[in-house]
Every structure is written in C-alpha cells, then in structure tokens.
Design a protein around this nucleic acid. Structure first.
Lengths: 188, 188
DNA sequence: GTCTATAACGAGATAGAC
DNA sequence: GTCTATCTCGTTATAGAC
C-alpha cells in the first residue's frame, strides 16, 4: 500500500477510536514507520489530513450505499444491510467517523464542517429513499414522513454506537437495530 | 457560589461542549479567575475533576428523574419531559456529558468507566419503568420488551443530539423526539 | 487557599540537508 | 520522499512562599 494510503488508514482508525483531539502525528508516525516531520509532506496540517479523511470516508460510504441499493433485496433487507455497516464499526472498536467528529465539532477548524454536514446529509438522503420505497410497497408503516424516519434511524444508530462504547454491551446494540426495523414493518 | 462549585460548573460546560481532550485547566482558570495551579488544590488531577463531574451530573439527573416520576402526568408526558432535558442540552450548545465521554472512552482513565456505565444504566432503568407503566395502562404499544424500547429511546436521543451538533438543525431534533413518542402511542 | 515559578513532556509545524 | 534538528507553544502537575 502506498504511504499516503497507509497514513490515511492509520489516521482514520485513530480518529474513529480516539477522536480528533485524542491522537497526534506521533501516533501515525509510529504506526506507518516514518518520522513525524515526513507526515507533513503528505498532509501539511492536521486539518488537511482530517478533511481528506472525511471525504474518503464519505466516498467509501457512497460505494456501500450503491452496493446495497443495487442489490435485488426488499427494503427491510436493505435497512439491515445499512445497519450492518454500523455493526462492523462497533466490532472494530470504532465510532462512526462522522459521529466522532460531530461531538467534537466545536473544537474543529470550521473548514471541516461543510464536509461533515454533507456526510450526514447523504446518509439521511439515502435512508429517506429506502424508506419511501418500502412505504409505497406497503412493506413499511410510517408514522411520519420518510425523511423524519430517516433522521430518527440515523440518530438511533449513531447513539447506539456511542452507548455501546461506554457499556460494552454489543447485544444491546443488536437488539436496538432489530427493534428499529421490526417497528417499521406492517403488523410490527 | 463557592470556588469548588464554580470550577465544577465551568468544567462541566467545557466537557459537554469540547470533550475531555478538548479543554485544559487554563480554560477553567480563565473562567473562574484563579491561577491554573490553584485548581489542583480542589482537584489534584484532571481525572479526579471529571470523575466528580460524572457523579454530580448523575445526581442532577436523578433529581430530574424523580421530579418527573412524581408528577401527576401520563407516561407519554413523562417521556416528553425526559426528552425536554435533552432539548435544553442542545439549546445550550452542549452534548450530554455521558454521551461526550462515551465517545472518548478509549482515551479516558479506566477509573472513570464504572461511573459512566452507571449513568447510562440509570437512564435505561428509568425509561424502562416509564415504558412498562405506560404499557400496562394501554397507553403504549411495544414491539419489544420495555428495556429494549428504553435502550432504543436513549440511543435515539443521544444520537439526535450528536447529529444536531454537526448539522445545526434543531428542528430535526424536535421532529425525531415527536416521532419517537408518537410511534409508541396506541393507534400511533 | 492562592500565588509565582518551574519542571517535564508532548503537541503541530518548519528549515534545510540528503 | 525522508531525515535530523529545532521552534514555539500548550499541557498536566509539583514545589514552596505568602
């Protein structure tokens, strides 16, 4: 793997596990095996690095969303596949990159905020579409607009991830996912 | 107000807005008007300070939970009152103290974790009781156990707070709260 | 209880050789 | 592209005077 990609992979893990204010260039340098100063050749500032991270993370997400959207599965299975992404994040001891940065947003360079907003907007948009499709197919019963349910689902998944970090209770995370999806189904 | 309480109030705001790794003793010293070194007289280490903060925050919560429990209102109104606490937190530009520390938990002194877990356990326990009461009164329709719904509600509120920090969309937070409660009601 | 002074360390970032 | 060396600043924490 190219050095630039090694740096990004290391930094991504560090942000997701420890937060923007919880890691340093020294951590990355140790991990990828070059000196701190050399990192500045690839990313002049920490903000540059994390901005790239948010863009890469959003692009990774986009690929997963397209993969799920294009699968020949019903809307509820697509929601499960989406939740499965979060499950994998939890299993790897990480928070969602977007969620982590969201909590720290008051301490971040404001230049990061537009990309961060776009990340959440894209998640909400995709979920809204899936929910709308499931609704017209009489698969889901919605008590509010598809967009409202989308924001609620996104909130619940981010929050379940956050809480599982404190409690260590992964089974509770899985139960919350199941409840969220079963609550949408006809005859719930 | 006593100096110790001023320090706690300042530190609480700083943790909720910026996180454990996002503030320093210098920030508190500036705010309460004494020197950095004097802060160590009250709280020898940063971990001591934040441990006290978690205990105080949990005690503040307990008082609010009892106030709501003792009110002569139906279970759905009690849920609304509980959600109102989060609304106030959002309006003051803060994250839940527990939620903020949860995301940072991998960087915290492990001595903080038991208190942090108790905070979440108490929230879940209280919500479970309210949901169970509303259920036997045929006010709520539950698609899982009361404890499952409690964890889901707590997750959704924490997550909605987190997302509102990134998007700045307070209306979305309110919609999520409404949807969470209306989704529980009979004939929802 | 609050201060000055300072220790000891780590942070992000830069200069310039190779 | 990677290095050594260094700068400047901020961090938590301590010592000891008042």
């Amino acid at each position: 793997m190219e050095m630039r990609d090694q740096i990004l992979a290391s930094a991504q893990r560090l942000v997701q596990q420890r937060g923007f204010n919880g890691f340093s260039y020294a951590d990355i340098a140790d991990e990828v095996g070059i000196r701190k100063a050399s990192l500045h050749h690839y990313f002049p500032t920490k903000t540059d690095l994390v901005l790239t991270l948010v863009e890469v993370y959003t692009a990774q997400l986009e690929a997963e969303l397209l993969r799920i959207s294009n699968a020949p599965s019903p809307a509820n299975a697509k929601l499960r596949a989406y939740a499965e992404i979060y499950h994998g994040t939890l299993e790897s001891g990480r928070m969602c990159l977007g969620g982590m940065l969201a909590t720290e947003s008051l301490t971040l360079d404001p230049a990061l905020l537009p990309s961060l907003k776009r990340f959440f907007a894209r998640n909400t948009e995709w979920l809204t579409e899936i929910l709308a499709v499931g609704h017209v197919q009489h698969l889901f019963v919605l008590t509010g607009s598809a967009a409202d349910h989308a924001r609620m689902l996104l909130s619940a998944l981010q929050g379940a991830l956050l809480i599982a970090r404190a409690t260590g209770d992964h089974a509770a995370f899985d139960m919350t996912v199941s409840l969220l999806i079963s609550g949408l189904l006809r005859k719930g």
